[in-house]
């Protein structure tokens, strides 16, 4: 009951901001544009055709076809990847202040005088932020999916997996925002640090390899690469895009990144709650 009130308060705070409403308006516009595009004959036939890739072997060029797939599946993959990045980057900035606004002077004293254990505020705010972004993602993706289904008759259920993966990708980075938000009380700083860590996750292995080669001339993996691999497991939302892309083109997908991110979320949200419960205001 009290916990639900915290989540409800967070969502309400979100809707009091223009940014969240703005995101819904932009999503609606995207769905409408998609519906209009799907009406065009050229678009319809183009999207439903099987994708062809020209492969060059020496001087002779062959055309490779993908059985059971359409261009639309490729388009879904592209849209999903774009949305994933967009959600992580834009979503983080839009929701970063939920954690820090809780701790504003004059507000925090009120909250802490209520019979609510401190951790519930952090978990509630975190959940509220994730719910807002997941609703946003679900709205856009289901909207596009229904538009394509009705206009083109193409109902690829794999596209709906994007909702889960994109939400988890956001939630992973948001757990870092929450932690740094509690520690520094600055939403901008927390968002920037969390996103820097996200970017680091994408480049850390190549970086390790590069440094190994630069310093030791190893042609294979050295100690720095191993360190990089270790660090990678502490960074949430890593490789989720890859797994999702595989699902979307009917390839066997590695679900480990999903579970690793969920585990890291549990760890970082717990650490945030712990830090918050020790904090003085």
């Amino acid at each position: 009951m009290k916990f639900l009130a915290i989540i409800g308060g967070t969502i309400r705070e979100g809707f009091a901001r223009k940014t969240i409403l703005g995101m819904f308006i932009v999503s609606t516009a995207c769905i409408i544009i998609a519906v209009l595009l799907f009406q065009l004959n050229a678009v319809q036939s183009g999207l439903l055709a099987p994708p062809k890739v020209q492969v060059q072997h020496g001087s002779n060029v062959t055309t490779q076809q993908f059985a059971g797939l359409t261009v639309l599946d490729g388009v879904w993959t592209g849209i999903s990847m774009m949305l994933l990045l967009l959600c992580v980057f834009v979503g983080t900035f839009v929701t970063a202040s939920f954690v820090t606004s809780l701790m504003e002077k004059g507000t925090i004293d009120l909250y802490l005088s209520k019979p609510v254990p401190r951790w519930q505020y952090i978990v509630g705010r975190y959940t509220g932020g994730v719910l807002i972004i997941s609703a946003e993602v679900a709205y856009l993706i289901i909207g596009l999916w229904i538009a394509a289904g009705l206009s083109l008759g193409a109902w690829n259920p794999a596209f709906l997996w994007s909702i889960l993966f994109i939400t988890v990708a956001f939630a992973g980075i948001y757990s870092l925002v929450t932690l740094f938000g509690v520690l520094t009380r600055s939403s901008w700083f927390a968002a920037i640090i969390a996103l820097a860590i996200y970017i680091l996750g994408a480049v850390i292995i190549p970086l390790g390899l590069f440094l190994d080669r630069l310093l030791n001339g190893f042609s294979t993996e050295g100690i720095l690469t191993s360190v990089a691999k270790g660090i990678k497991y502490t960074i949430p939302s890593n490789s989720l895009g890859n797994s999702l892309a595989h699902i979307l083109v009917n390839k066997p997908a590695d679900l480990a990144p999903l579970f690793i991110t969920l585990g890291l979320i549990a760890i970082y949200v717990s650490l945030s709650s712990f830090a918050f419960s020790r904090k003085e205001f």
Binding site: R12, E13, A16, E104, K105, G106, T107, L110, S113
Partner: peptide
């Protein structure tokens, strides 16, 4: 019940 000094409520 507690009334803090400089208390602030969500303005919306």
């Amino acid at each position: 019940g507690y009334l803090p000094e400089n208390h602030r409520y969500p303005l919306y």
